[in-house]
């Protein structure tokens, strides 16, 4: 009884695997090679699918996002958007559009860039409630200069308030 069960499970699974393959190969086969091949010959690439521009954009911005530290979310977000758009395009038409590896590289590096920025925002949010003050996140030097600047502006405000008080009796 028991040895007869596994073959029965295996046969329908192989049947399921065989079914989708004719669906994948049928669409876009006859029409697409003709408009793509002349472009490939002009650019000097001999064979294979054409690399998607979105994938290149995504990957370049992703690498910039990794390097650009605490504002990596700006190029990172664009890299992630372009990466997902590119993967969608490649999924629809894998035979004429290439660059899946580049799109994935862009996605990974883009998400790393966003994660780094999220870490910075969380650090800032935690520092707001800490004893050191919210701007301790940006380093001691910055906090000192920030507090000095705040003091200076406060004094200037008080001085201008005094000045306006002195002006009023002069006009009378």
């Amino acid at each position: 009884m028991n040895p007869s069960q596994p073959p029965q499970r295996q046969t329908p699974s192989t049947g399921n695997q065989a079914q989708p393959s004719p669906y994948q190969s049928t669409p876009h086969d006859p029409a697409n090679p003709y408009p793509q091949q002349p472009q490939q010959q002009q650019q000097g690439f001999p064979m294979g699918p054409r690399t998607d521009g979105f994938a290149i954009t995504s990957m370049v911005l992703g690498i910039i996002a990794v390097v650009s530290c605490y504002f990596g979310a700006i190029p990172g977000l664009i890299a992630v958007i372009f990466g997902h758009l590119s993967l969608g395009k490649i999924k629809k038409d894998p035979q004429t559009i290439g660059g899946k590896g580049m799109a994935i590289a862009g996605l990974v590096t883009g998400y790393i860039g966003i994660a780094v920025t999220i870490f910075c925002v969380v650090a800032l949010a935690l520092a707001v409630n800490s004893d050191d003050g919210p701007f301790s996140v940006f380093g001691e030097e910055f906090q000192e200069s920030f507090e000095a600047e705040m003091k200076k502006q406060q004094e200037e405000l008080e001085e201008s308030a005094r000045g306006s008080e002195e002006l009023v009796p002069d006009q009378e």
Partner: peptide
């Protein structure tokens, strides 16, 4: 903000690639 420091550097002490 001339003396601004990267939050990652001030919090963890790690220099990231762009530091």
């Amino acid at each position: 903000f001339p003396q601004i420091s990267c939050p990652i550097r001030s919090q963890t002490g790690i220099d990231c690639p762009g530091c």
